[in-house]
Design a protein around this nucleic acid. Structure first.
Lengths: 141, 141
DNA sequence: GAATATAGGACTGGAGAGGTCGCATATGCT
DNA sequence: AGCATATGCGACCTCTCCAGTCCTATATTC
């Protein structure tokens, strides 16, 4: 349906929160969840995944939580989305479980691949530094 | 997961087929289904939807089938996709069943809306005349 | 050692995608 | 007329996978 998963939405929201509050050290999943009314357990999973992918760093224990692993301008929406949902591919032509049966005869996969490239480009040009710039614009607009 | 539905894929494939064979009059769902190994019953549903939305015209009876309702340059990938899957909106911010609970506090909906615009733009600039032009390029590349 | 974090696996409910079937209707052919 | 072949459309079914919960282990602070 060409929609981001809720997990990806939550991830974007959380990373942006960590960007906004990065001067205050770590923020817990609990705090972020409360702020945006996201189920805390689920959000924790999402954040753990972002740690695994090297986008965030975590701190255990009281006063622990999450913080950005690098400056906000080096974290893109694509980074977050693909960390959570896997690679951005709008078609089902090929997945980890092989190709779809249409692939050999498919006359539209090449154009769709180009559309896909455009989407990837738009998402990767959108960093969190960018997002919080009040006068931001997407690149190449 | 930011993927087109199979129905949308089938629709794109079918409309492109009708574009390629438009000089030969109507083509049945059965023929198209066999060509691309698409379940015929399902494909028929998809094509009927495209008729409802005014993209195709249908003819009942023997030697009936489907054909484009207008020249291929006036039918875009976006037309087909949104006819089948509904409007292209990558977020769950708002649907026909109201807004998500995050919306008021959401800090990323505006940037995502812009990404969405880019996707819509890419899909709407992709006509079927365009797709079958061997040297095609997406607009604004 | 109590409180508060993350880490991560197991599990469940439910929505929705993908697909099937049956029947009505329309058209062409013999 | 009668049959074969189309579309039109609603009901239905299955099965995957997203969204969310729960539980336990581990780490850190006070």
């Amino acid at each position: 349906m060409l929609k981001l998963s809720k997990k990806a939405d939550y991830g974007l929201l959380a990373v942006n929160h960590l960007t906004l509050y990065r001067s205050q050290g770590s923020v817990s999943a609990r705090d972020i969840g409360k702020t945006y009314r996201i189920p805390v357990g689920l959000l924790a999973k999402v954040l753990q995944r972002l740690v695994q992918k090297g986008l965030l760093k975590s701190e255990h224990g009281a006063n622990g939580g999450y913080r950005l692993a690098k400056p906000a301008e080096f974290i893109s929406a694509l980074d977050v989305i693909s960390a959570i949902d896997g690679p951005v591919v709008i078609t089902s032509c090929k997945t980890e479980r092989g190709e779809c049966v249409q692939t050999p005869a498919c006359t539209v996969k090449e154009p769709l691949r180009r559309v896909n490239d455009r989407i990837v480009e738009a998402l990767s040009s959108l960093s969190f530094a960018h997002i919080n710039n009040p006068t931001f614009r997407l690149a190449a607009n």
